[in-house]
């Protein structure tokens, strides 16, 4: 287990210094006070406080995820700061700084690739499956809104024409956004068809049998 000893004027200051070094919040460490520290007289005879911080498994996962990302960034000569937090049971990494924008790439391609590899490497390091989300300056959120707008627009079109629409191939997380956006629309149904990279989302008028509308869309 990861642990660290730190000193300070008071135990609280020592804990804060340790957390800054680790880059995680207080909830991810167990604190043991090894020496409470004593104020000296006229700066003489004082004793520093000494604490030991033991990182919890959840905290270790955050520290490792950030370390993996930082290593990749360094090797890519990308200068950026990394913030890490827990998010929906997984790990969310947020990049900022001068080069952060470069990391998005064409249609988020580079961002997706870094996210995937950090996830893979982390899984192997901690021998557990973790959902990793990597974001730069709210890019993921903007992309989600774009996809939702597109979903609503296409659903209107399907309702108007009564014909199914087959979307361009999207990755699983993007298809999920569209399925969720349209699940409350009882006039259309959504479905993913095909395999692997060629898997596409289809928006159909509700009540039309899949086979029938498949023929229509061809």
């Amino acid at each position: 287990m990861m642990a660290l000893e730190e000193t300070g004027r008071t135990a609280d200051e020592a804990v804060d210094a340790g957390l800054r070094k680790l880059g995680i919040a207080r909830e991810y460490v167990l604190v043991e006070t090894l020496a409470t520290g004593a104020r000296g007289f006229l700066g003489l005879g004082g004793q520093e406080a000494r604490v030991r911080l033991t990182v919890t498994p959840g905290g270790e996962r955050l520290i490792r995820a950030r370390a993996i990302l930082q290593e990749l960034l360094t090797l890519m000569s990308v200068e950026a700061e990394v913030r890490v937090e827990e998010h929906e049971g997984g790990v969310r990494l947020e990049l900022s700084g001068k080069d952060a924008g470069l990391l998005i790439g064409k249609q988020g391609q580079t961002l997706d690739a870094v996210e995937f590899l950090v996830g893979r490497i982390l899984d192997r390091a901690i021998r557990d499956r973790t959902r990793v989300v990597l974001d730069v300056g709210g890019y993921r959120e903007r992309r989600r809104q774009q996809l939702e707008q597109m979903a609503f627009r296409l659903a209107r079109q399907v309702r108007a024409t009564g014909e199914a629409i087959v979307l361009e191939p999207l990755d699983a997380s993007e298809r999920r956004i569209i399925h969720l956006a349209l699940q409350g629309d009882d006039q259309v149904t959504t479905e993913s068809v095909g395999d692997g990279r060629g898997r596409r989302l289809v928006i159909r008028p509700a009540g039309v049998k899949a086979f029938h509308s498949e023929q229509q869309s061809i």
């Binding site: 990749l72 090797l75 890519m76 000569s77 990308v78 470069l102 990391l103 790439g105 391609q109 580079t110 997706d112 690739a113 870094v114 995937f116 590899l117 893979r120 692997g196 990279r197």
Partner: peptide, 22 residues
């Protein structure tokens, strides 16, 4: 290489980004 070459594709994407920077 990964499932359907996904891992290899991601490594290539990172390599391209790093190369472009240089």
């Amino acid at each position: 290489i990964g499932k359907q070459g996904r891992t290899a594709r991601c490594i290539r994407t990172l390599l391209n980004a790093a190369a472009t920077k240089l």
